[in-house]
Design a protein around this nucleic acid. Structure first.
Length: 567
RNA sequence: GCAUCCGUAGCUCAGUCGGAUAGAGCGCUCCCCUCCUAAGGGAGAGGCCGGAGGUUCGAUUCCUCUCGGGUGCACCA
């Protein structure tokens, strides 16, 4: 692929005798297209060359040789505005796109590297609720993106499958199993038992003993208890799987908390060998360098804890995956915890791995009143309820605004699920997100429903007009990156689209459609909140966005279609 | 109190490792339905980029301080 910055920098280097990489880093993209495609600010060279910036600009312009890729150069103030000849670039990309199809844009920067992404991690036997939405959606998006960039990605669902939570359900099941029907939707009965147990325990703290007993039995390996435990996990996972399919995310490992039960000793042993464990207030802790609370490894009651388990998981991942990067998609509330864990890992002698670990925090999901979702009664709390409600509401809107649409149900599912995912990704990651149905299901502007609907609508119009759209059919279950795939696929048939548009004289519709797609693509890859740390990934996404934007813009220009908004 | 994150249009957010008049979408105001689904198109109002210093030719961007908000601060995960 042509790299205009490099081409320009090469010429500039010949003229100015300044380092080519330095020059390339100075080149920027002007705020609007009237000022050219690339700009070179001469202010930076003013000091070295001891000349006024506009003078330098003029001198460079005069000495700039003819170049097949550069159309013209203007001098505005201290800026050198460069207009490139885009046709070679566009045809270069179009060819590459049509050769590679849905693989267009795939990168190799991750080849030979392994990244572990720890995301979703619901607590078994508790409802899969709104609190897990962000981890699942953002983690799922990262999973796909890293895969696209050539990484060996290991998606880990660190299930909360151990401890008091699940034992409350086990205890309740033992007591009341005859009162429930587990034949139709066992998960509903399991959840009902969990809720019932908690309600009683809240009023009668003494009731906790049943769960404690269950945990004891489970730890001792009691056959019956273990059997119930396994069954609850299976049933819960089957239920979660539905949500994962809907969102379109996948996992390579479901090793949860229980998996590390027999791997905690090693953590304690290694820490003791390295003289890192210190006795403090009855607990065994690792002292931190900075003035922050120590990392607790063994509680004063003698039990292991969250941090111990995360360290066990890290050691396991080091041994088995030898990762180059390990991401944790966990709410920002836990920043301190991860700081402590990573520092402890580093002190244990795994500095290389510790620095490869990254906590990717995100804000809470709040309801319209700014309260934590689900804290008030009457709110939909489980993810299944939320998605169903979204699909239902979408269907209502379609029913009301466009009752004649074919396959309403299918479109409603597409729109409803996409709306939730888009809303989540579009929100600033670190900030709390307001879960506002009006905003989520808005059918105008930069919203999920608009993108999805435009796509469906365009297809049906083209079909009615006698044109069989060659855009590959969208996979409803993979909405996570539907936007990106849409663009890639649409461009894969760019020639056809343009020909059709000209013949049918439907340029405005097509242009809107393509621009919508370009925007959503760019939006998707610009979800930079996710990827600020990784320079290589940033570069890759910029390159992709740039390329797609230019192709579409130039393609439209060739057709004489005005581009209504900037891309 | 300490730590950390966040303050850009009424709302939700962009702003390319400091650069040319700070950009979108929603909402709002006005105009446009014989014609591509009005789920549309066009035009417009709306900003001392929380505040004060500093570095720089140049700061929304970097540094210091300050004000306002979120979160965390050991034996729950």
């Amino acid at each position: 692929m042509l790299d205009y910055k490099k081409i320009i920098a090469e010429e500039l280097a010949k003229i100015t005798n300044v380092d080519i990489n330095e020059l390339e880093s100075y080149i920027e993209i002007p705020p609007n297209t009237d000022l050219g495609d690339y700009a070179f600010p001469c202010f930076r060279l003013a000091k070295e060359l001891k000349k006024a910036p506009p003078m330098i600009a003029n001198e460079i312009k005069e000495q700039f040789p003819e170049n097949e890729y550069i159309e013209k150069i203007d001098v505005v103030g201290g800026y050198l505005n460069i207009y490139v000849n885009k046709l070679p670039y566009v045809s270069d990309i179009l060819k590459s796109v049509s050769d590679n199809r849905e693989n267009y844009g795939k990168m190799t920067i991750g080849n030979g590297k392994t990244i572990v992404i720890d995301y979703s991690a619901p607590n078994i036997a508790k409802p899969f609720h709104i609190g897990h939405l962000r981890s699942t959606v953002i983690g799922g998006a990262l999973y796909k993106m890293y895969k696209f960039l050539g990484y060996n990605v290991v998606g880990v669902n660190h299930l909360g499958d151990w401890g008091m939570g699940i034992c409350r359900t086990i205890a309740g099941y033992k007591m009341w199993k005859d009162e429930y029907d587990f034949s139709v939707r066992p998960i509903d009965s399991i959840l009902a038992i969990y809720v019932r147990y908690n309600k009683i325990e809240k009023e009668d703290p003494d009731f906790k003993k049943h769960a404690v007993e269950a945990l004891k039995l489970l730890e001792e390996g009691d056959e019956e208890t273990t059997k119930i435990w396994k069954w609850i996990i299976d049933v819960s996972l089957a239920d979660y799987k539905k949500i994962y399919d809907l969102i379109g995310c996948e996992f390579d490992s479901y090793n949860g908390e229980a998996f590390y039960n027999d791997k905690m000793d090693r953590v304690v042993r290694e820490l003791e060998e390295k003289n890192l464990l210190v006795e403090s207030e009855g607990a065994k802790v690792v002292v931190m360098d900075e003035d922050i609370p120590p990392c607790i490894i063994i509680t004063s009651a003698g039990t292991t804890i969250y941090a111990t388990r995360d360290l066990a998981a890290l050691l396991y991942r080091i041994d088995n995956y030898n990762f180059d990067k390990c991401l944790y998609l966990v709410a920002s509330e836990q920043s301190l915890h991860f700081k402590q864990v990573f520092e402890t890992l580093s002190k244990m002698g795994y500095e290389k791995y510790a620095s490869a670990c990254e906590h990717i925090p995100f804000g809470l999901v709040l309801d319209e009143d700014g309260q934590k979702m689900g804290s008030r009664k009457g709110n939909a709390v489980t993810l299944e309820e939320i998605f169903n409600e979204s699909i239902e509401k979408s269907l209502q809107i379609i029913e009301e605004k466009n009752p004649t649409l074919e396959n309403k149900e299918e479109v409603a599912k597409l729109v409803g699920v996409g709306a939730i995912i888009f809303n989540d990704l579009a929100n600033n990651r670190i900030k709390d997100e307001i879960f506002d149905w009006k905003q989520i299901l808005n059918f105008a502007g930069e919203t999920g429903p608009y993108m999805q609907y435009t796509y469906v609508r365009t297809q049906s119009i083209l079909r009615n007009a006698g044109y069989t759209p060659k855009f590959a059919e969208i996979d409803c279950t993979k909405l996570m990156d539907a936007e990106a795939i849409n663009v890639i696929k649409a461009i894969g048939n760019f020639d056809d689209v343009l020909v059709s548009a000209t013949q049918k004289n439907e340029p405005s519709l097509l242009s809107r459609y393509l621009i919508d797609l370009a925007q959503s693509f760019s939006r998707f890859y610009n979800e930079h909140h996710i990827l600020t740390e990784d320079k290589a990934v940033q570069d890759a996404r910029l390159l992709l966005t740039d390329a797609v934007g230019i192709v579409i813009k130039e393609g439209l220009a060739l057709l004489g279609i005005k581009c209504p908004s900037q891309m």
